[in-house]
Design a protein around this nucleic acid. Sequence first.
DNA 1: CGCCTGATTGAGCTGCTTCAACGGCTGTGG
DNA 2: CCACAGCCGTTGAAGCAGCTCAATCAGGCG
Lengths: 245, 245
Amino acid sequence: MTRAPKVVLIRPVQPAPVRATRCSACSTRTICMPPGLTVDDLAKLDSIICSTRSVKRGETLYRSGYAFQSIYAVRAGSFKTVVMHRDGREHVTGFQIAGESLGLDGVCAGHHNWDAIALEDSVVCIIPFAQLEALCREMKSMQHHIYQMMSGEIVRESSQMMLLGTMTAEQRVATFLLNLSLRFKARGFLDAEFHLRMTREEIGCYLGMKLETVSRMFSKFQREWLVHANGKTIRIVDAEALARV
Amino acid sequence: MTRAPKVVLIRPVQPAPVRATRCSACSTRTICMPPGLTVDDLAKLDSIICSTRSVKRGETLYRSGYAFQSIYAVRAGSFKTVVMHRDGREHVTGFQIAGESLGLDGVCAGHHNWDAIALEDSVVCIIPFAQLEALCREMKSMQHHIYQMMSGEIVRESSQMMLLGTMTAEQRVATFLLNLSLRFKARGFLDAEFHLRMTREEIGCYLGMKLETVSRMFSKFQREWLVHANGKTIRIVDAEALARV
DNA sequence: CGCCTGATTGAGCTGCTTCAACGGCTGTGG
DNA sequence: CCACAGCCGTTGAAGCAGCTCAATCAGGCG
């Protein structure tokens, strides 16, 4: 958990392997991009999103303080985003799975405010923000889509604030599992059984509780036949009851 | 605290008194709008922001479920934004003072997700979002400004998540007071002495604690000569010590 | 095989909540 | 003008949800 102290505020994005790709041929386009794009629109998209980047498990996609140039779409794998206070306090602000976006925290100040760390070997599409902005000025649907993405992030964060501010540990864990389940479902994965890529400690750090409490809640749900948890493999047995917790 | 249950999801924005105004002549323009606007830019702005609205203390500017049409800039007064869970749980997601924005939560789904309630008699500028989007397509500086505003909201919310997830009650209240102080200062008000427009209960609801705990922390800070609190009037006596809490 | 990380479970502690009482301020109506 | 109701804030006492500390175990990897 210890890391070199943050001293340099603005650093260039570290060099990384890139690889040609095409949005027009991407199967997760329907998730990242606005619907109803014309062939013309797709060509424009392809012209700005021309590279991907692989990030190995535990490595950072970007760190707080790095100069902001691009946003990212998770193409495969998953990430956590972590804010860090000067006193060393850490908080996980979110987990991102395939089809979700990363990096919007950087627009505001021109440098990133969080660390984004891969939970498993992952691949992201790199979307240069300046070029995306230019594209938005000529493509109304794309413009609106970006506003919606950012607003969606704001709304998601506000529900997380409500979770942190008003729910018991039991309710937080239940909400977390149901939310993950929904997101897996939306991306065509199984919603009743899935594999957690994060540790109990990371879950706790996201939900504002200690890892022991997370573990106890998992055990409790198991005793009550709501969830079957075997290490990182989770099977949701009774989603309705879980939602009523 | 009781309210009529929310049944209709999409309702038109309620009729409201409007009044002609001009961004070009507004003293808080430097806070709401990007810097370096030309006379031409200002004329364009004036053409879309042509009305204000007064909201009396306790009244809502908009409610969760209302159709989203505009964002708002607080011109005078202050607001709280409240998310409500189906089970009646309420959480204050933020307080907005003069020069700050409201309503970005609506872009995502086309209807608002929160209630925005005036803490005192207040006035907002109404900025029709569709027209703003159009303006952004031709004005690069404005486009970037809106992205920055939204990203800033995302970053702010993430610090609030960290606060809720990792800090003790004492640290939360200290952080809250220092944050308010900074915002007042940025707007040209006194930063060492100010008047809280919200009740202890609303503060508690924002900080994820009970009103009694908020009150106890105020008393504690007073005993320790960090803050002088007389009802809603707050004087910050030792800001450095408060930051070290 | 042995080491290390991550997960589980128990026992005791504590910070915040709950419940309750009370005092001050404000607005209202006689 | 005063009396009174209702809200807001403060403070105390007791309870409990989640934390801390600690021991144990399982799985992965060199």
